[in-house]
Amino acid sequence: MTEKIKAHIDRLLQDAPKTRRIEEMREELLSGCLDKYEDLTASGVSPEEAFASVISGIGDVDELIKNLSSENVFDPGKAEKQRRDKAVMIGGAIMLFFLGLMSIIVFDEVLGLENLAILPFFTCVGFGVALIIFANMTQQPVKYEKKRIPLWKKSKPT
């Protein structure tokens, strides 16, 4: 019967995202349900009745999933800030590219250091590329929005 309870909770959470908080919720729900089941059967309630009582005592899990998910998955303020941060980084990278080109002119024409002109150029381009890669790795507002969609599909099997 404990397997049945576990299966029921798994079904309730099947559409939830696989986050740490949801896993903790699964564990705590399960432990609460098993405590109740054992307590009821120990006091003489039949396994079937105890199971029914445990299931009906769970309540509205969908609401909880929605609350837990919205914190982790979508926060308009955070997404907006990330979008802006990314724009600043890309802007900085483009500036570095121009700086690189300008440094060639400065070194070559103004300072007359033909042989060294390539050095600041590659340094600037290198930092620019690194900045773009960093921006794409850490700032991903798109992903945040994608995850929102499938969460609150309702499934209420009993």
Binding site: M25, E28, L29, G32, I58, G59, D60, E63, L64, N67
Partner: peptide, 12 residues
């Protein structure tokens, strides 16, 4: 008797 979900939400 509180529902499990109610209890859980309150703990969080």
């Amino acid at each position: 008797e509180l529902k499990e979900a109610t209890l859980y939400g309150a703990f969080r």
